[in-house]
Design a protein around this nucleic acid. Structure first.
Length: 571
DNA sequence: GCTCTAATAT
DNA sequence: AATATTAGAG
């Protein structure tokens, strides 16, 4: 099929062919206008082709939009909004592009941090022509992987397996940005921002589906291929399943070795061990109990950790309610919550995905059909995956195809726009600190998780809408004595919950959240049952203030966040 | 040549 | 930590 998923990232001007490194397209990011100008001039002097922007967000937008191709990025470290490290991280996640950091700060730690995070180079201001002259080497290096493996080859620790033959994996099909092309890109070609393959995200819904498949097949006989078939989610690959299965088995093993783990541990032996202290209604016990927040349990069933999974009696789907508000108005829309653990560094953290940081306009730019509707997002995810796999995106409708597993329709709660004040509240992280490098959460937050719906699914039928109960949570749990700080206490009170739910059910909720694909299936029943503890707002604010809210939210006011969350991002 | 899975990379 | 890739073996 001649689809060329690969062709997308094509070509660059043949014009520059011979003159490399002349004309190397460099994106320069610095909030300091003067520095920016100076850098620009210097780069020009070196015959490069600089493009300057004053903030990371814009830089990212440009990179992601792909309207312009770049070969290298030079970014200042200290910048409001999104600092160089965050930018670096996001770039690294999404594309293969050398990033050079510059800073006035020559503190070893800072430099180290930059390098450790993948910066190709770190320069101290003021930068001079001399230093810029050879930055093309970083571009060249990417083009020639051997250059790197050579270096490591010197170590007799022949551990690293990065032989030049790498490009010939059996999976050549979905190979990361077609490593073999590199050989043909030879001389004089721009490397340009080559997007990485999108990462798939195991949402709780997907995980549940995965579990369902495993249960049907039987843990022993469950192999990637079978699971894949059963799950019937078009954008998943066997490799995706294999990876997840590996992780799952590892988890089971762990649980098995520690069968006496306390309830807390059990519940949290899930996707995200970081989420603590969230409430979840546990039907099993008929009352509110602590559970891992925003994450799904690995279905450690009530039969304990056995070699074979018993029917999933405790599968829980969690949905959250995102937030950002609009004059205290109600949800502009609701959508499914990418309840994926990685998106939450803590219960109240905004869901973070590589693309969460990218303004919707970018998505819109790239994908005309992209809009805020939740289902739409899921579809886009599928499309992106397909594209990344070199497939011709199937028609959107296919994304809604029912799976063989369940047919029930359901309502999925999720992202809601919240009143402004909530932004702050919801930003406290369970760890009481700002999202760090690894927690990609620069200016993100189109959405903030405000609470969660939990749902219990009937055994063997994840698609059915049985006994589902939703509630907002408040992270402060009396049951969770292990929590170390109060930072994970979130501002979600029952009144709001009520209000939200009310609106959800009377507004666009239904029409917007009906999912038929591998998406989450759940019906929501607003319940006041758990009037979780309510810590005074002021407490929360105080805690939050300690985190330098400016950094975290400076962006939130820039535009109207939609609360949409892209799950996958393209490569 | 395809699949699985442990090991490793990112 | 979560996913992706690779290496080897079947």
């Amino acid at each position: 099929m001649a689809t060329m998923g690969g062709d997308r990232r094509q070509m660059m001007d043949d014009a520059a062919e011979d003159k490399f490194p002349e004309g190397l397209r460099i994106l320069v990011v610095d909030d300091d206008r003067v520095c920016l100008k100076v850098l620009e001039a210097l780069l020009r002097r070196c015959k490069y082709q600089p493009t300057t922007v004053m903030d990371g967000k814009t830089a990212l937008r440009m990179l992601m939009a792909g309207k312009q191709q770049f070969d290298l990025v030079i970014t200042d470290v200290r910048m409001p909004d999104m600092d160089g490290f965050k930018l670096l991280e996001l770039i690294r996640l999404e594309m293969d592009l050398p990033v050079i950091m510059i800073s006035i700060d020559c503190d070893k730690k800072v430099v180290m941090k930059g390098i450790d995070h993948g910066a190709s180079d770190f320069m101290v201001k003021p930068v001079c022509t001399h230093e810029l002259k050879n930055i093309w080497q970083h571009v060249q290096r990417r083009r020639n992987p051997k250059a790197i493996s050579h270096i490591s080859d010197h170590d007799n620790d022949v551990q690293r397996v990065q032989p030049a033959t790498t490009n010939k994996s059996k999976y050549s099909g979905n190979k990361r940005n077609g490593g073999d092309d590199s050989s043909k890109n030879n001389e004089g070609t721009h490397i340009s921002a080559i997007h990485r393959k999108p990462r798939m995200t195991w949402t709780i819904a997907l995980h549940n589906k995965f579990l369902e498949a495993i249960n049907r097949i039987g843990l022993d006989r469950a192999v990637p291929k079978k699971v894949l078939e059963l799950m019937n989610v078009d954008y998943l690959s066997r490799e995706n399943i294999a990876s997840h299965l590996q992780k799952y088995r590892l988890h089971l093993k762990k649980v098995k070795s520690n069968p006496s783990g306390d309830a807390y541990e059990r519940w949290n032996s899930s996707y995200n061990m970081n989420n603590k202290g969230n409430f979840m209604h546990n039907h099993e016990h008929g009352r509110w109990s602590v559970s891992s927040g925003g994450t799904a349990s690995w279905s450690t069933n009530k039969y304990g950790s056995t070699d074979h999974l018993a029917p999933p009696m405790n599968i829980q789907s969690n949905f959250y309610m995102g937030s950002y508000l609009h004059d205290g108005r109600m949800p502009k829309y609701v959508g499914e919550l990418p309840s994926d653990a990685r998106r939450f560094t803590g219960f109240a953290d905004p869901p973070v995905s590589q693309y969460d940081n990218i303004p919707n306009e970018i998505m819109s730019d790239e994908f005309p059909s992209f809009n805020y509707s939740n289902s739409r997002r899921d579809i886009m995810r599928g499309k992106l995956m397909e594209i990344s796999k070199g497939k011709t995106p199937s028609n959107l409708q296919s994304s809604f195809a029912n799976t063989t597993i369940g047919g029930g329709r359901s309502l999925v709660a999720s992202q809601v726009n919240f009143p402004h004040s909530n932004q702050l509240e919801s930003y406290a992280t369970s760890s009481g600190r700002l999202p760090l490098q690894n927690e990609k959460a620069p200016f993100i937050s189109n959405t903030t998780s405000m609470g969660c719906f939990t749902e219990r699914l009937a055994p063997f039928n994840m698609a059915s809408n049985i006994s589902s109960v939703g509630t907002m949570w408040n992270g402060s749990s009396a049951l969770d004595a292990s929590r170390t700080s109060t930072n994970d206490t979130h501002l979600v009170n029952s009144e709001r919950t009520t209000l939200m739910l009310h609106n959800l059910q009377t507004d666009d909720f239904i029409s917007l959240t009906r999912l038929h694909d591998g998406g989450d299936r759940a019906s929501i029943f607003p319940m006041q049952e758990g009037t979780l503890n309510q810590q005074p707002l002021i407490d929360h604010l105080n805690e939050i203030n300690a985190f330098s809210m400016d950094d975290m939210f400076s962006n939130m006011h820039v535009e109207d966040f939609t609360g949409d969350v892209a799950i996958m991002e393209e490569a």
